[in-house]
Structure formats: structure tokens, C-alpha cells
Amino acid sequence: MALNRKVGFFKGLKYKGGGPMWAWVLHRTSGLAMVVFVGLHIIAGFLTQQFGSEAGIAINTIYENDIFQLVIFFLVIFHAVNGLRVVILDLITPLLEYQREAIWLEWLIIMALYSLVIFSVLHDVMMG
């Protein structure tokens, strides 16, 4: 019996996978976003360094935007911490039993790190 793979986007969102499912979705989207950002940033850096290109500078200016920084820091921190959970649970298999607890711990760590980021970015905005 084959799995039915013809599931639409919104129907897929209704799947009650809970914490692990959302971690999986966020891990993928944040990973794809980082491929785009880092890839563009490398090429922009190359253009700026070699040719003093306007396009390169324009791309890198987007990266200094405060909103952009808040978003990208969240994606990076989430991807890093969630990735560490995946690595630990995959390589030390007995721990898989504590999947739920691991996800709670993961979000606690993310919130602690991300609140430092919010503080720092807001501090820079307020102090000019």
C-alpha cells in the first residue's frame, strides 16, 4: 500500500504533528532562507571586494537593516539549536525517548539567546 503523497499545502498544515512537526517545518524554511541569504552575501561580498560594485553594496545594505537582523538572527539561532537537538538525538539513540522534553529545552535555550539579540538590537536602535 503506497502512501498518498498528493496532499495540498493547506491540508498539510492541518496535520497534527505538534512540536516535532513545527520544528521540522521551521528547520527547512530557515535552512532555505539561509542558503539564499548566505549565497547572495558571498556573491555580493565578491562583487564589492573585486569591482566595488553598486549592486553588491545594495545587497549588503539590506543586511544591516534592524528588522532584517531580528529575522535572520531568529532563523540562525533556531536552525543552530534545533540542529544540535537533531544531532544529539540521532547520534545518541536512547535519548530519542525524551523527544518532547528535548523540544521544550530547545525552545527555552532559543528564547534565552534570542532575548539577548532583541536587547542588543533594540539597544542599538535606541542609542542611535
Binding site: R28, G31, L32, V35, V38, G39, I42
Partner: peptide, 16 residues
């Protein structure tokens, strides 16, 4: 860092 990062990222893109 560049080698691991780019390879990790593009392999992730391949998987998706």
C-alpha cells in the same frame, strides 16, 4: 567554515 557551511546548505537544498 565556508566549505562546511556551503556544502551543508546546498546539500540541505538538495534534500528539500
Amino acid at each position: 567554515m565556508v566549505f562546511f557551511g556551503v556544502t551543508h546548505g546546498l546539500n540541505g537544498l538538495r534534500i528539500v
